[in-house]
Amino acid sequence: MRDIRIAGVLAGPLFIGVSLAQALTREGFDITRHAWSLLSNGSLGWLQIANFVLTGLLVLAAGAGIARAVPQSRWAGRLVGVFGLSMIAAGCLRADPALGFPAGTPDGPGTVSWHGIGHLVAGAIGFLCVVAAAWVLARHQPPGPALYSRVSGTAFLLAFAGIASGNSAPGFTIGFIAGIVIIFTWLAVVSLRPDPVS
């Protein structure tokens, strides 16, 4: 059981590492202004698309492992699984160019396409599901880990709400990056030891 949950430990470093490497090296990308989803555009966009899909597969596997490890709360694993599926969908449905990225794109929100809307909807569903998973799993953990799950889920929800507001101010963008780190760290922790108690 633990072997399949190792996917939850690997998912965060993969997604964050590949995203950060691109964010720091791709021309015109401003880490304080641009969401990582925009990296799916341009000649190297396939890297971020693959990053979404591979990370999604790892999260999906972790969700299956969590569901088996915590039979009292199969919904937590299922919700993590939906988060994984949403990442795969977000990779397949590319975000629209915006805010001057990729280089040469006009500044501003840009045109919204059907696949851009699909990307946003897939992300929103997945983000809300992983927040719900943190809270559901907390009901089957000892007090310390339960508090950690609730705080992680709530912190990520607040970070998502900030970026979903459409505000591209540095505080919101960096806050969302922090939220991603928090929720993938939570996934790694519960994948290693979900601490079921009831």
Rank of each mutant, 00 (worst) to 15 (best):
M1R: 03
D3N: 02
D3Q: 05
I4C: 01
A11F: 07
L14W: 13
I16H: 04
V18P: 00
A21N: 06
Q22F: 10
Q22H: 10
L24Q: 12
T25G: 11
R26F: 15
E27I: 07
E27Q: 12
A35V: 14
A35E: 14
L38V: 11
L38E: 14
L39G: 11
S40R: 06
G42N: 08
G45T: 07
W46Y: 15
Q48D: 04
I49Y: 03
A50N: 01
A50Y: 04
L57Q: 01
L58K: 01
A61P: 00
A61L: 12
A64S: 02
I66S: 00
R68A: 08
A69F: 04
G77Q: 03
G77Y: 00
L79D: 03
F83I: 02
G84K: 09
L85D: 05
L85C: 11
R94I: 11
A95D: 10
A103T: 13
G104T: 05
P106D: 05
G108W: 01
G108D: 06
G108M: 06
G110S: 02
S113A: 04
S113T: 13
S113Q: 03
V121S: 00
A122Y: 01
A133N: 03
A134Y: 02
A138P: 07
R139F: 06
Q141H: 09
P142N: 13
P143Q: 13
G144T: 14
P145I: 09
A146G: 14
A146L: 13
L147Y: 10
S149F: 11
S152N: 11
G153T: 13
G162L: 10
A164W: 12
S165E: 09
P170I: 03
G171R: 07
I182Y: 06
A188H: 02
V190M: 06
S191G: 11
L192Q: 03
